[in-house]
Nucleic acid binder design. Sequence first.
DNA 1: ACAGTTACCGCAAACGATTCCGATAGGTTT
DNA 2: AAACCTATCGGAATCGTTTGCGGTAACTGT
Lengths: 386, 386
Amino acid sequence: MSNCSKCDNTDHVAKAGFLRGKQRYYCKQCDVHFTVEIAGEKISRKPHQTTIIDIAKHLGVAPSTVSRALNNKAEINPATRQAILKVAYELDYKPNLLAQSLNRGETHTIGVIIPNIERPFFAGVLAGIQHMASNAGYRVIICQSNETHQTEILNVQALMASRVDGLLISHSKETSSFEHIKLHLNKGVPIVHFDRVCNELDTPKVIQEDFKGSFDLVEHLIEQGCKRIAIMAGPERLLISRTRFEGYVAALKKHGIAFDKELVYHSNFIKEESSIALNRWLNLPNPPDGIFTVHYANAIEMMVEVKKRKIKIPEEIAFVGFGDELIAELFDPSLTVFHLFPYQVGETAASLLIDNIIHKENFTHQYSKTVKGELIIRDSSLRKQL
Amino acid sequence: MSNCSKCDNTDHVAKAGFLRGKQRYYCKQCDVHFTVEIAGEKISRKPHQTTIIDIAKHLGVAPSTVSRALNNKAEINPATRQAILKVAYELDYKPNLLAQSLNRGETHTIGVIIPNIERPFFAGVLAGIQHMASNAGYRVIICQSNETHQTEILNVQALMASRVDGLLISHSKETSSFEHIKLHLNKGVPIVHFDRVCNELDTPKVIQEDFKGSFDLVEHLIEQGCKRIAIMAGPERLLISRTRFEGYVAALKKHGIAFDKELVYHSNFIKEESSIALNRWLNLPNPPDGIFTVHYANAIEMMVEVKKRKIKIPEEIAFVGFGDELIAELFDPSLTVFHLFPYQVGETAASLLIDNIIHKENFTHQYSKTVKGELIIRDSSLRKQL
DNA sequence: ACAGTTACCGCAAACGATTCCGATAGGTTT
DNA sequence: AAACCTATCGGAATCGTTTGCGGTAACTGT
């Protein structure tokens, strides 16, 4: 029998079952339960990062004082402050951001959701976001939706669970319902859309010159003498696709060229689509003499095919597209593009979001900041001037 | 005068200075100080996410019980457990990851440091890391060193401050001292190197077939009849550059080709270097008939220049390089590469790290996992067979 | 000398979740 | 029926920081 933990006596002690593997006792007299500690086994002390309490003990002050000193608060004696700072340095104190975040209710982290990090455009955006964020003292957590609605929803949940201070999002090609965003928007979470924005939600947005870019590219083709211009448009659900499509239509209209449904193909970001669309067009009774692909990669892929067939670019078919990639410049023939600036998109979006986070209450929404693009005319569309 | 907060009497109350803007009083009798609360001004209640305590109150149980139910612990009545789960669902409870992390001492987050997210290789690696990490329930924080040593150090500090559970790193081209890593390694932080690894540190590493790739590419050039092979090597500080360089040297040696210092140029990832190196080589008394660039982009840039000069590829000069980019395939002429698999590198590194995190104690280091590459012979080096 | 004031600091309660213990109530054994 | 057990739950400490508020000593002016 063991000694009671209270009266240190064994007289009235009786066994009282097992608890988590240990024998349990009960002292009738003291009305107390207890288990016996297995001797030893208590040495495992973790390495332990220095905390504010360590500093406090070290100097014989209260943790609150240390906190005040470290955070440069008022009510503190400059002398003690210096002393604390010194010890903090000596003990290599690093504040525990988790504890800070928990206490302050903000994580100084922003979440980013993009369809795919491997797309150079988004990588560029990310770089811009990172740059702006880290300058403002914010960390960045990145999620990829992989172009699926479901994953996007999971991403949002994961980021909100991580208690990010704000959200930057470019929707997946599938996304047509926005409840998962609305939910958190209504709770007051700052959210900024970029590139693949949506109009149904009342968020600040960063877009590009999608309409103008399309319009300029198509008009350029027309000026080069193209009469039948095909368009490889983006997924229909995306607003950005529709806007670009409208630019195409508008340019045709302005120049009195009839719109032909046969010349429209809505891509879905699948690899084989380029050759499918191209073949369809080339087999038409009167095939196009100009092709506008919303995504530069499609133009390149098509040009590869067209070159194989010994069709002359740009004389027989001219190509233009949106893009920001080196390949457009280096490919032979070089591709005329409406050049995009993903880095700027990222910077703009991030700064908008951070503004929003900091001035949460009285944030006057600034909708639709537009990052300008640039029409770069190259060999794929530039026909010899007569 | 105001009523004492204790005796609720005004008799012995006297003013006692100002405290944070409010008038302060002192009750002699009760020996008590107090300030008067400005009426109102107390309504600002935050929206408040449901917590474990809300659930507990809702059911009249203790928070600890709720925690046990939610975490599927033993010692809990299935009935209460169901009840708790139900309420949790109804109240849309989401655990506060911050609080969990603080308590458990782990964040379920891994930090990644890469030189530049815009380099497609690293974007690919990131995608692999993300995939593996999110499957294992880990979040990912990404930092860019921008190829500078100083930023890399700051990155490490930032990530450690965020209390990441482990670190994945590919060093900047400048990094030649590794104290900033060693420091945390010694504290027991799991760290895995990938791609740009370093040998001075006792960490698991994920590398590629750098030696073999170089060797194969150069040997291929030799088999195609090249006698003088130039190399555009990487920054000298990087181990990966040195390894690749050694592969080059070894291939030359095997085939009895003399090593010529004139044919070596160490790149530093600066844009103009391609033309500088190329010009230098072309102006040599006996210029190279084969060029091996460690980075495919340099090969492409050089080929652009070479094409302008009407020098024939591959007949007069053949090109090969490391790479994983579409442009290598689409460029004219298509580039022979030792194809890399960044996504796999990322996956491997992440799984190694997560293994390391989970089995922290008894982790048997598995050094140098190698992700295999693939020699893809294309037009830039394939001379007409006689 | 004393009310009134200031400067500085400590205490303790948050933040949200986990977990070690001990406390019950109701069984089972002898 | 006493002795022992099990299942289940509550209390309180803990993680590391921040912060509201009260306490104390010393200082100011009259």
